[in-house]
Amino acid sequence: MVHYQASLDATFAALSDVTRRGVLERLGESEASVSDLAERFRMTLTGMKKHIGVLEQAGLVTTEKVGRVRTCKLGPRRLEEEAAWIERHRQLWSARFDALDEIVEQLKRKEKTDAQRKRR
């Protein structure tokens, strides 16, 4: 369970930043060098390396250094665990909202019935 939780934490932490999500979208098109990514996102090379490090730790990106160029591409990790976690919680909240809708409808019917009784 601890490994599972650590994996979720790393993934959600990586996805919590708009720049890192943008990097993933960009790498979905094709691989890119860290320099190209830094330029595209208008940030320093050091800043981009930090973002890439977070994505690498989560397994979402892999890098390879050839000469002086470090190239990034999408990692082997799929997001099945994360998608399953989200789906379980979506179902839970959906059931809660359905129950709340039913309570609201009951209250509306009761309010309508009470209003009709008062008119008589």
Rank of each mutant, 00 (worst) to 15 (best):
S94M: 10
V69A: 04
L27A: 06
S16P: 01
R117S: 08
P76T: 06
H89S: 01
V34F: 01
F12N: 04
T11Q: 08
E87I: 03
K112F: 11
R40F: 03
K108G: 03
D101T: 11
E80L: 03
E81T: 04
F41P: 02
E82R: 06
A99V: 04
I52W: 01
L45A: 08
V61L: 06
G28A: 13
G59L: 06
L37G: 09
Q5W: 02
R109C: 05
V54Y: 04
L24F: 10
L92P: 02
R109A: 15
M48P: 05
R20A: 08
C72M: 10
V61P: 02
R90I: 09
D114S: 10
M1G: 09
R26K: 09
K65E: 15
S7C: 00
E64F: 02
L74F: 04
R68L: 11
K73R: 15
G75L: 03
Q57R: 14
S16W: 03
T62K: 14
R68Y: 09
Q57E: 15
H89Y: 10
R68W: 06
A115V: 09
E82P: 05
R120G: 14
E81I: 02
K49Q: 13
L79K: 00
E29R: 14
P76Q: 10
L74V: 09
R26P: 00
D101I: 07
T62S: 12
L92S: 11
G67Q: 12
S7Q: 09
E102M: 12
R68V: 07
A115I: 10
W85P: 00
T62N: 09
A6I: 00
L100T: 12
E82W: 07
A14K: 01
S33G: 05
E25T: 14
I52K: 02
M1H: 03
R117A: 14
R90P: 00
D98S: 15
Q91M: 11
K65R: 15
T71L: 08
T19A: 11
C72N: 06
S7E: 12
D9K: 01
A38W: 10
H3N: 05
A14Q: 03
A99Y: 10
A99N: 12
A99G: 11
E80H: 03
R119N: 09
R42H: 12
S30G: 07
R117M: 12
E102C: 07
D9L: 02
Q116T: 07
L107C: 07
V18S: 13
Q91V: 07
M1T: 02
G28W: 11
S7W: 01
L74P: 01
K112I: 10
F97D: 12
H89R: 14
T44K: 04
A115R: 15
M43L: 05
A6L: 06
G47S: 14
R88K: 14
A95F: 06
G28M: 09
Y4D: 03
I103F: 11
S35R: 12
A10W: 00
R109M: 11
